[in-house]
Design a protein around this nucleic acid. Sequence first.
DNA 1: GTCTATATGGTGATAGAC
DNA 2: GTCTATCACCATATAGAC
Lengths: 217, 217
Amino acid sequence: MTPSKQEILEQAAACFMEQGFHATSIDDVARRLGATKGRIYHHYASKIDLFFDVHREGMRRLFEAVEPAREAGGDAMTVLAAMLRAHAMAVLTHHTFESVVAQGVQMHRFGATTPAQRQTLDELIASRDRFEQLFKDQAQAARDDGSLAPDLDVSVAVKTLLGGIQWSLIWYRPEADRDAASKDRLADAMVRTLVDGVRRRREAGQVKPGLPRRSGT
Amino acid sequence: MTPSKQEILEQAAACFMEQGFHATSIDDVARRLGATKGRIYHHYASKIDLFFDVHREGMRRLFEAVEPAREAGGDAMTVLAAMLRAHAMAVLTHHTFESVVAQGVQMHRFGATTPAQRQTLDELIASRDRFEQLFKDQAQAARDDGSLAPDLDVSVAVKTLLGGIQWSLIWYRPEADRDAASKDRLADAMVRTLVDGVRRRREAGQVKPGLPRRSGT
DNA sequence: GTCTATATGGTGATAGAC
DNA sequence: GTCTATCACCATATAGAC
């Protein structure tokens, strides 16, 4: 990927996050690049193609963040928690791209598209489904080994977990000059809420901490 | 409120949910009404005013749903769970209007508005903040009486709880002909996930965890 | 109160200079 | 590879008939 294309992706992601796909004009993106739209149309045939490429990059970053946690091993609930934590960090860190992923999901449900666009979007959504399936599989493994609350519907539970994290796209203010440690604390707080719930655990001998703590910094 | 205005609100909410504010044209809403845009402009001065009125109605329905649960009494965690459940039911039932509320929050962060629009939107967002504060106050009460996990940040926890519910705006398919009982089960599943967490609660003496198993199914 | 017709402005996309 | 200039289209909003 050329540096120019990468820069277009970054600025487009910022515009799409702030204003949404339809309210963002190609001129908006170009202005943010300090350029004119000729530059963008040289690399992308249409606004929707640019949007799809941002979406694709957003998905790539999600997989990149979560896969190491998934493959690290350990007992099933610990791995699930680590995956959620990695996902939370990815959403907080790449929030412009992940906002576009969320918009793409909405567009898939209702957006009017040409057949060619439809196919591209179908592929992106299939990728999103595979991502969610990683969490469902891990939750099922935790259910099988008895570390997940046995009365929960795995599909609804996973959607609720991911939703709790992803809603930070709505309320998180990255412009409030956050450092990495601040994001770490926030991701921790979200995942602990989701994994252990808000209701106090009263059972005797709560020997296992909620999550593996990240040492340092 | 005249029946005509109510009908405009309903169809506008549906359009705004499906396509978003910017992608929805006044003609789209009119077409859904089986009318032309003259009808809409007779009642609303502009598209943004119509949007704001949908947003306002969405907030009204949220308060209407949650306040009875809040005032029902009981111990603090029980009331918090009942509020979350009422909220989940409201989001599932009025998902078109609540989608608009979520869009309004986004618009408040980034949307370009005239000063008059800005003031209206500020008021709507203040209302949304008061709504969230109901949950924060209740969570704090639960913390005070020891029924909430004491190490949680109340603000982040509440945002995560509400987010887990509100993300159903993205994935829930109301068109799949759901009855009220189905919504009840879904709301229950979400709230249980959030209040008690996905990690199994072990009774005392049952603390021995097995090795992680990868059994099939 | 709702319709038709239209003025006005903005946006996606293209053509061609450099 | 990027720019300027331009076209064709669509959407908001208004005016005025009925």
